[in-house]
């Protein structure tokens, strides 16, 4: 189990879209290190032949019939929008020059 570096945390923060100051990165690196250490034994707990459980209760084939249901009005859809134009959500430029 490799230790978590500050660069790792910076990368994770980037993946998670959370801006972090240098001080926050330092603090998070320390805390995460401790937590990861504490839970590291999990990776050795189960042998290869133990199947993974993704769902606590095993159900299969839960489907919906292809029938149109109730929709939101545009007003309801946009009632919490931080910014909108007519009936569309508005967001700042997507990329800084892709």
């Amino acid at each position: 189990m490799s230790a978590i570096s500050r660069e790792d945390v910076a990368h994770l923060a980037h993946l998670a879209h959370i801006e972090m100051s240098d001080a926050e990165l330092d603090k998070m690196t320390g805390e995460l290190g401790v937590i990861v250490q504490a839970i590291a034994s999990v990776s050795e707990a189960a042998s290869a032949d133990v199947p993974a459980t993704t769902h606590p209760i095993a159900l299969t084939n839960v489907f919906r019939e292809d029938v149109v249901g109730e929709t939101l009005t545009a007003e309801e859809a946009l009632m919490n929008a931080p910014d909108s134009v007519d009936t569309r959500f508005r967001v700042p430029a997507i990329l800084d020059g892709e």
Partner: peptide
């Protein structure tokens, strides 16, 4: 299909934006 993959919203092209939506 008549509805979307994971919701009962209509799968229709070209309507007023954000009207064929569910939560």
């Amino acid at each position: 299909t008549k509805t979307k993959m994971f919701s009962a919203a209509p799968n229709v092209f070209g309507d007023t934006p954000n009207t064929n939506v569910t939560p």
